[in-house]
Simulated assay, not measured.
Amino acid sequence: MAYQDGQNQKSRGLPGFLPGYPDPDQSHPTVPSNSRKQVSLQSLPPPGNLPPGLEYLSQLDLIIIHQQVELLEMILGTETSNKYEIKNCLGQRVYFAVEESICFNRNFCSPLRSCTLRVTDNTGREVITVHRPLRCTSCWCPCYLQELEIQAPPGTIVGYVVQKWDPFLPKFTIQNENKEDILKIVGPYATCGCFGDVDFEVKTINEKITIGKISKYWSGFVNDVFTNADNFGIHVPADLDVKIKAAMIGACFLFDFMFFEHSLAGL
């Protein structure tokens, strides 16, 4: 399976595809298979050159994003600002994200709305800022498709997520701060996710190797019908650049807006 092939090459093959890494033939430290059990919020690596606040991301190969259920949204049917908890594989909250947008945009522009998502750590410090302008999603508007700007820390651009034109599949590119293509994300033809998970595969630029995935987990028929609260999982190599992991968190927010904002629409 392509995903398994990508995982098998995590220690050697992946760094060669990312700018700034040493030669792929050189040896690289690997993460033990039981690393998920050893991860804790207290065991942070030294800061080094990592963006402040993102040190903990360097340990994670699974990032869970849980959208909070909004009671007012369930009762009145109006779209409220999205809020997300970002957790590790043990369910410990690492970050918290809040959407900033205008009420008019949320209820009339809906999935296309412009907004800013502010990601804070457990001390309340803002560590990631995601800016989303108002843009199109239709394949009939290839020159004005979706684009996110990711800053970490706020004010310092570390990457972009850019939608690419394709008549059949949702395709996106993760770019660095210089707008150089780093990785591609390819989604399925059908993204409704009525009775199962929806996987967006993370691939190398040539799309030959799958190194991870962003999954929208199916939360059950009742929850999908009566709430817009979604659960996502980002599966990536633990040694992937934290800036790219931050961009993938932004991509996860974008997918939620684009494809899963209205649960009833997918049924």
Rank of each mutant, 00 (worst) to 15 (best):
Y3C: 12
N8Y: 04
K10V: 00
K10I: 00
K10E: 12
K10Y: 01
L14M: 12
L14C: 03
G16T: 06
L18Y: 06
L18D: 09
P19G: 07
G20W: 05
S27W: 02
H28G: 04
S35M: 08
S35N: 13
S35I: 08
S35F: 05
S35A: 15
R36G: 10
S40D: 11
L41Y: 10
P47C: 09
N49T: 11
P51E: 15
L54T: 04
E55V: 00
Y56S: 02
S58N: 06
S58E: 09
L60M: 12
L60A: 09
L60S: 11
D61W: 01
L62M: 10
I63R: 13
L71G: 04
M74L: 10
I75V: 15
L76Y: 14
G77L: 09
T78N: 11
E79R: 12
E79G: 04
T80M: 14
S81G: 14
K83H: 13
K83P: 06
K83Y: 06
K83C: 10
E85D: 14
Q92R: 10
R93G: 01
E100Q: 15
I102N: 13
C103T: 15
N105P: 01
N105I: 00
R106C: 00
C109R: 11
L112F: 13
R113E: 05
C115G: 05
N122D: 13
T123M: 10
E126Y: 00
T129Y: 02
H131S: 11
R132M: 05
P133G: 06
P133V: 03
L134S: 02
C139D: 14
P142D: 05
C143G: 11
Y144S: 13
Q146A: 14
E147S: 12
E147C: 14
G155T: 01
I157G: 03
G159N: 06
Y160D: 03
Q163P: 13
K164N: 12
K164C: 07
W165L: 14
D166T: 02
F168H: 05
P170H: 00
P170L: 03
K171M: 12
K171A: 05
F172H: 13
F172T: 02
N176P: 03
E177H: 15
D181H: 12
L183M: 08
L183C: 07
L183N: 09
I185M: 12
A190V: 05
A190F: 03
C192A: 11
C192T: 09
G193K: 04
D199T: 00
E207Y: 02
K208Y: 04
K213E: 14
I214N: 06
I214R: 07
Y217R: 13
F221G: 01
V222N: 11
N223Q: 14
N228E: 07
A229V: 00
N231I: 02
N231F: 01
F232Y: 14
F232P: 00
G233R: 01
G233P: 09
P237V: 07
A238L: 06
A238P: 12
D239V: 00
D239Y: 05
D241F: 01
V242S: 07
I244G: 10
K245I: 03
M248A: 08
M248P: 09
A251V: 10
F253L: 14
F253P: 10
F253G: 07
F253Q: 06
D256A: 08
F257W: 01
E261D: 14
H262R: 01
L264R: 00
A265F: 04
A265E: 08
